[in-house]
């Protein structure tokens, strides 16, 4: 049965990518080889860096539909302006001026319904790419990459999460940082969410916001404390008071940070990490079955 796990964190840099990449490897090792990794951090996708052997299998462009006004048909009636909730259309009848401001447009299509004169057309505007990679093990990586300058990250994520292989049993989704719409889009489809945090005041504050979100969207979740040992004890106090499960702790290690820096986390696995992730995988398996 297909199960989807999202890896999220309010604060950036807490270790989402590390956990995602390792989980992919260890789910393959201890659970099933029908596992696929989706890099949903489309603004800054980084999972690929940790798979130097990856081979690109396919690639497609994702477009958004942006409207354009055909001035030869436009009667400057301003009906489209009335329909546009985003103030993206400027029509000035007195000077016969009509134009869509693409940077304000949300591609909702309302103006096409508003226009009774066939003056509203749509054209493709690139928002990013989706690439699929063979990783040697498992069913591979799917990566969304936002076009520089585009603000349509949520739309691209929606496309990425639809792309998983139908044979997949486990889909891992590496979410972007934050607590706003891109994170919701990534988590909305998940059966379980792993929240990766660090025990610092910033980590705690952002975790609290993320937990608020998880409760609002009614998703089961557990917390992984990464860089355990830095910071103070307020994280533990909070999690205990709220009765939130800590599903794993990864001790802070400067050596690990150095391996991460050079992209070598899967080449330097030691016994401690192996047993840590084996436990985590078993734990998840039990939870999801």
């Amino acid at each position: 049965m297909l199960k989807k796990i999202a890896i999220a964190s309010g604060k950036g840099g807490t270790g989402k990518t590390t956990v995602s990449v390792n989980l992919y490897y260890f789910i393959h090792k201890y659970w099933t080889d029908k596992v696929q990794l989706l890099d949903c951090d489309v603004e800054e996708p980084n999972d690929l860096i940790f798979f130097p052997e990856a081979r690109e299998k396919s690639f497609n462009v994702v477009n958004q539909q942006v409207p354009k006004i055909d001035n030869s048909k436009c009667t400057y009636c301003r009906d489209c302006v009335e329909y546009c909730e985003f103030n993206a259309i400027v029509v000035i009848p007195t000077v016969k001026f009509a134009e869509v401001n693409a940077s304000l447009c949300h591609s909702c299509g309302a103006c096409l319904h508003a226009c009774k004169h066939g003056a509203m057309l749509e054209y493709d505007h690139k928002i990013g790419e989706i690439k699929k990679f063979d990783l040697g093990i498992g069913l591979g990586l799917i990566q969304g990459e936002l076009e520089i300058g585009s603000s349509m990250q949520t739309m691209l994520i929606k496309d990425v999460i639809k792309e998983y292989n139908p044979e997949t049993e486990i889909v891992l989704m590496d979410a972007p940082p934050g607590t706003s719409c891109p994170v919701v889009t990534t988590s909305a489809d998940a059966d379980f969410i792993l929240l990766v945090t660090e025990p610092t005041p910033f980590g705690l504050h952002d975790l609290q916001l993320t937990i608020e979100l998880m409760r609002e969207i009614h998703k089961p979740f557990a917390v992984i404390i990464n860089k355990d040992g830095i910071g103070d004890g307020s994280m533990e106090k909070y999690l205990e008071a709220e009765d939130i499960e800590i599903i794993g702790r990864i001790a802070f290690s400067k050596e690990y940070a150095a391996n991460y820096a050079t992209g070598k986390i899967l080449n330097n696995l030691d016994e401690t990490q192996d047993s840590f992730y084996r436990n985590l995988v078993m734990n998840l398996k039990e939870k999801l079955n």
Partner: peptide, 10 residues
């Protein structure tokens, strides 16, 4: 600033 390069960063 925010992380990323999407709408908030822009």
């Amino acid at each position: 600033g925010p992380p990323g390069i999407g709408c908030a960063a822009i």
